[in-house]
Amino acid sequence: MKIGIPRALLYPIYIPLWKTFFEELGHQVVLSGRTSKGILNNGVKTCVDDACLPVKLFHGHVMDLIGKADVILVPRLISIYPGEFICPKFIGLPEMIKNSVSGSPKLLIMNFNARDRLEKGYDGMRQLGRELGASNTNVERALDRARARQAEYESMLESGFSPKSILEKRNARQSPASVKGRIGLIGHPYLVYDDYINMNIVEKLAARGYEAIFPENVPLEDIELACSRYPKKLFWSYGKRLLGGGLTMLEKRKVDGLIILTSFGCGIDAFIDELLLRANQREYRIPQTTITLDEHTGQAGFDTRLEAFIDMMEWRGRYDNNIPAYGTDVYTGKSLV
């Protein structure tokens, strides 16, 4: 059977797990095309207006698979880590697709719920494997292989590779020829690793001599440690990764600047970015900016923002002063004049 996997949401993180699992069970995996204007437009048209860009894109990617696959995988990632969630929309994703996308082939809904115990999370995959007609032994074997692949992948991510460099077997670490410095790129995987949506930001930074580092490059222990300063456990896995990743980069003086990429209307980021900004302002005072993406974001405006931020960062590096030429505070972006 041809199983379609939308190249959207947490695809860049979990693709080795999903793909290996289905292939080991004897199925063929087809991916939706890379994000494009067409996919984006379809998503925007089909999805409810109030949703955020990444969820709209997921709709577009599902539509792209119509006619290309026999069934389409819609992961329901309720919880990927005990006691945590990702985002309410991830839990309701299959319902959103079911009710908004018409004419799709059967949806293969794969639950992942590790809320109580990590191991239990894989039960959803086991069940799906059996529904697809595989024996228990085969399911276990496929799952073992898939998890081994995934573990390998995650450790490569931690050691500084980006999903693109691993998945497309580019051996270079996408570093610029001569490195002037590093910039932390804080954002959900579906923004920082989707070059169409993030306007190729990684290359643009490289062109100015900066290497991007991602939250996935920060080990989980450091993330936990960094977040322990808050009186209450953060219960959003990616929220925690973004915040803890950013704080760790600041704490270890790993970066010359932080760029937060966020989608308009993202409920999780609204809180996470606020906490990161406040901590930075109080303790580290490293230049930071937030770039908000939505379906109307234009290339030109985006580039201007990015250039201005880098200029300001370099200006500050030279004069070691907090007030840049533009008259805005480097930490808050609020106007000083």
Binding site: V48, D50, A51, P88, G92, L93, E95, M96, N99, C266
Partner: peptide
Amino acid sequence: VLPFGCMPEIVAESIIPT
């Protein structure tokens, strides 16, 4: 009724028309 950006209600919003 929902406040702008309310994550769970956006999911509900896509179900209600059905």
